[in-house]
Structure formats: structure tokens, C-alpha cells
Computed example of a mutant assay.
Amino acid sequence: MIDIEKVRSDTPGCDSVLHFNNAGSSLMPAPVFDAVQRVLRDEYEVGGYEAERRAQDDIVAFYDEFAGLLNARPDEIAYVENATRAWDMAFYGLRLGPGDRVITHESEYASNYLALLQQSRRLGFQIDLAPSDAFGQIDVDALERMIGVDTRLIAITHVPTQGGLVNPAADVGRIARRHGVLYMLDACQSVGQIGLDVEVIGCDVLSGTGRKFLRGPRGTGFLYVRTSVIDRIDPPFVDLRSATWTESDGFRYADGARRFENWESYVAGRVGLMTAVRYARGIGLENIERRVFGLAQDLRDALSLVPGVELHDLGQVKCGIVTFRKDRIEPAALADLLRRKAINVSVSALPYARLDLERRNLPSLTRASVHYFNTEAEIGRFADAIRAA
């Protein structure tokens, strides 16, 4: 069980603004804020190098906490500045070329798909788009039929940015392993609200952010790379953190996933993200997932009773991201109206998920997402605000 009173006491912003935009930028718990402030205060008082030295225990703990969160090894974890760059560090290091094929899904995040398009143009590989099943999630049977001898990569997003869909990541993993195909999973929107076990999922690469459901600082992210595949990925760039200059004309990569890191990094953010993971693990990801999914269903049920509201979440399993439209008011205008009432939501629009939203003829959606610190009373207040809009 989650101690909601304790969680809300750690989240001062809950008292003044109703936050339903956790998929975009969640409220930071007080222990995370304090951890970031402690490092910044040291940087102010003694400088960056000494501040980093003082933070060494927490920097080391970053890898242990993420290993525990994902059921991985500490040396399979890298700190990267954000989720997109984490995904890029793995993808741009793959040795793809003419004749190779990469499978993705129409729910893929825009930044990832842009990278696929760019590298396809540069390297000549083919992008294959897996269809959706009746629930709107990736059709795993069709996916398996698409795999051929020239398929090199399956890359999908676990929870797309534009709705509550949860793609069947573990089913995809079983197919990838059966065919020996590298499997990349973007967990940007799922980490922190869904329990993630890389052994159960079967992914080779997993990337994510700190600022969403993990409730960490903005400008922080992470990358998991399975030990057995790490030598198949050539980091797109290196520095003296990710590689060692061994002789005048030679170098060697850092061991494990550290080869995907930069020497210069946001130390306060790294410590803050470690603290956010520790905070989430202290609550328990099973508890978090149960409460978030339950509150999200309560929100969908409440919105379904509001005249003129149409829900647009896909998937056999739906998470804490809730999307909808209301007649006669565009999502951006609705978000502005709600903000004036101290209610924060987000908007999902075409640039972020073009293939999916175009297929559904939805230029934009209101995204009202819950987290475990929200309450049933807040869901009622939100539904009333939508009814009055």
C-alpha cells in the first residue's frame, strides 16, 4: 500500500495546483529536490570538482539503484542526459546497412522515427512498419511473420506519448529472442509507473528519462544495454569517460555501458535521479503500478460520463496516461482554460506521433495523466472542470 499522506507531504505542489500532466513533467518529491540542492550548494561553496567528489557515494549508488529497478547489472546501466540521447547512443551505434531491415510500430515516438528515417537515408536499410491489432497495440503475430533473415532490429515504444496504450513488450521480447533479433525498447513513459524487468521483457536495450513518472530532475536519463550485445554497438562518439587513450594511435572502450556516457555531466541531476529511483523503489513499483492504473481507470470512468467527451486510449492494457477530446473546444484551448483554474494537463499533437494520430484522424488530444499522489477527490474535481468547460 502507498502512504498517500506521506507522499503528498513530500510533494508540496499538490496543495496549490491539480497536476494531471505527469507524463510530461511530474512533481519532484522533496527528497529528490533536497538531493539536487545539496550538490548545487556544494558547487556554489566549493566548486564543481569538489562537489562531485563529495557526491561519489551517490554517483556509485546510481548504478545500483537502476540495476535494482530494472533487474539488471550495475555495469549494464549508463547515465545519459535525456531519454532521446540515451536511445540515440545505442541506435546510432548499430552497424546497419543496405539490405538490412528494421521493424517498428506506428505508435513509435517522433524523435525515434526521425532517427530511423535519417539513418535509413544514410545507410540504406529498410524500415518495416508492424501493424496494430484490434486493440491498437502492436500485432505480435504479424510482427513474427514480418521477421526475415535480413531483419536486424525491432525497435518499439513501450508506452507511446499520445495515449494510455501499453504495448506488449514481453511478447515482443519472446519473438525477438526466438529469432535472434536485437530488441530496443523506449521506456520513457513507462519507467516509474510500470514495473520493468529486463529479463522478463527480453529487451537488449532500454532507454528512459528521469523527469516523467520517476519524478526525477529534468535533463536526466538512463540507458540499459545487455552485456551480451554490448560489443555489437559501436558508440557514435567517445570521450575520456567512455574510452581510454591507450597509446598514440589506439584506444579502448570503457567496460560495460559506461562507454555510452560523457565525462561532463549534470552531477546534481544524476544524484537527484538516483534519489528518485530510490524513492520509487521504497514505495514499490507494484504498489505504484496498481494505484496509477486504478486511478487512471477511475478518471476514464468519470470522463465517460461527461457530455461531449470522447476517450481515445488504445490498448488491451491501459496505463496512467488518459487522452480525450471534448466537443467544440480544441485540446490546446482546453489546456489553457484548465491552467487558469490551477489544473495542469498536456497536449499530444501530430508532430509527436504522426503515424498513429494521422491514421486515427486526430490532430491533437488532451492528455490528463495521473500519478500515485493524486486522489479520488481530485479526479472528481477534474471531471467537474471538464464538464464546465
Rank of each mutant, 00 (worst) to 15 (best):
R73V: 00
A335F: 03
A55T: 06
L27F: 07
G93Q: 09
D42C: 08
L334E: 01
R252C: 07
N22P: 01
R177E: 12
T220H: 00
L143R: 07
P98W: 10
F373G: 10
S207G: 12
G124V: 07
D141C: 06
V225I: 15
D197T: 02
V159D: 09
L357P: 09
A276H: 00
S348W: 04
C319F: 11
V181G: 00
A176S: 08
R281V: 08
A332Q: 01
L305D: 06
I147T: 06
I386K: 09
L362V: 11
R359K: 10
Q56R: 11
V149C: 08
V140S: 10
D197V: 06
A389C: 10
Q119H: 09
I288D: 12
I379C: 03
G256L: 02
V309S: 03
R339L: 12
D3N: 15
A187C: 07
D234V: 13
I154E: 13
Y109N: 15
R360Y: 07
R290F: 10
S120N: 06
G216F: 04
V238L: 15
K326G: 09
S111T: 11
P12T: 06
D249I: 12
E65N: 13
D34K: 09
P307G: 03
T275Y: 01
E5A: 13
E289Y: 05
E264I: 11
Q297P: 00
Q162C: 14
P363L: 01
H371K: 06
Y253M: 14
G163R: 00
G99C: 08
L40M: 14
A176Y: 05
E264T: 05
L117C: 14
R340W: 00
A142H: 02
R53V: 12
V36L: 05
L143I: 05
G284E: 04
S25K: 11
Y49F: 11
F382K: 00
Y49N: 04
